[in-house]
Design a protein around this nucleic acid. Structure first.
Lengths: 191, 191
DNA sequence: ACCTGAACACCGTTCAAGT
DNA sequence: ACCTGAACACCGTTCAAGT
């Protein structure tokens, strides 16, 4: 298990992987940089060659999360030509992501603001879907596409955050979490 | 500064107050139970007479936050007889609370699930406002009041969470944070 | 009943030293 | 260039002892 050396950059990724493992197993509160080092088989000071500090490692984890989310949303957006259906599926994909990777999701939205959602590529995917729906007159064009996309993102984000913390029955829902998103979007947008 | 004793229950509240101070000054990451004790002028083991552990103190802080939020929402709900206006004001109050007390807000939604929002008194206030709006045909009765209230709560929660993390310009908004809530609700509900 | 003092294992971070 | 080993101040928690 204990290794004597890593070749270029291999330790960096090993640390990120180890961090994700710990986050998934025990959550954010119990996360320890020393333990990450221990798992990788290096001394507790070794991570400092690759990350400025504990926070920077978590930021790197968050960055991988944003990339995973973006890919998922882009695949989802491409999965249908119908504007309404695309919006609903995007909502489902967002909430499903938060339940499939709660450790990543929490880390993403705990990390420093520079890694925030709005302005990121993931937001662009949603923005395009909203603009498409407006063009096809599925959605009103009175609120701007930006405001509408921001509203929808906030709704999905709130849904994800709240449903991660609560037993689903208290939401008055027995269905899988992504159905929560689609029925909420339907209810709010009148789709 | 250092006191030799507290009379019944006084230390408990002093610890809660100290915890809120630290949370407000330096945020969750830097929070330390030892420092809370130091500020109260007692030994590091003294808090354990009043709280099982560090987490229980944070839960007590969260409980005070829920109570403050409930009071704010209830006052807001009573401030107008118009159902539409009441919904919009409730949205504004929720987001304003998150910006006035970011430390409380973050602590509330980080603490253990048993302190969750849905099912709490704060949720009841929103639920009544939604039911009223449906009764007056301001809102559609097709989605149940519960689903609609949950959707609105999620939207407000997401808005609060995201806007706390981002400079407002990236939201395409220059207005104060509570206007964000009202324009979002208007856009989504067609109010 | 409530608090102190000392102790424990653990944490994040630094730095000189090894290869 | 990359990692170790020892060190520092600090943390959460426990427990015997004091009043």
């Amino acid at each position: 298990m204990p290794r004597t050396s890593y070749h270029h950059g291999a330790l960096r990724q090993a640390l990120i992987d180890g961090a994700r493992e710990i986050l998934a197993e025990r959550g954010h509160e119990q996360f320890s940089l020393n333990e990450v080092a221990r798992r990788a088989g290096v001394s507790t000071s070794a991570p400092y060659r690759h990350f400025e500090n504990r926070d920077e490692l978590l930021t790197a984890v968050a960055a991988q999360g944003y990339e995973t989310l973006r890919q998922s949303l882009e695949r989802t957006a491409a999965s249908t030509a119908d504007a309404t259906e695309r919006l609903l599926r995007l909502g489902g994909a967002y909430v499903r992501f938060s339940h499939d990777h709660p450790d990543l999701f929490v880390t993403m939205f705990r990390s420093k603001p520079d890694a925030g959602p709005v302005g990121h590529e993931s937001f662009e995917v949603l923005l395009r879907a909203v603009a498409d729906a407006q063009r096809e007159r599925v959605l009103s064009t009175k609120p701007s596409a930006e405001l509408l996309a921001t509203s929808i993102w906030a709704t999905l984000h709130g849904l994800a955050a709240l449903s991660l913390r609560q037993p689903h029955e208290r939401f008055g829902m027995s269905a899988p979490p992504e159905d929560l998103a689609t029925s909420t979007l339907s209810a709010l947008l009148g789709l």
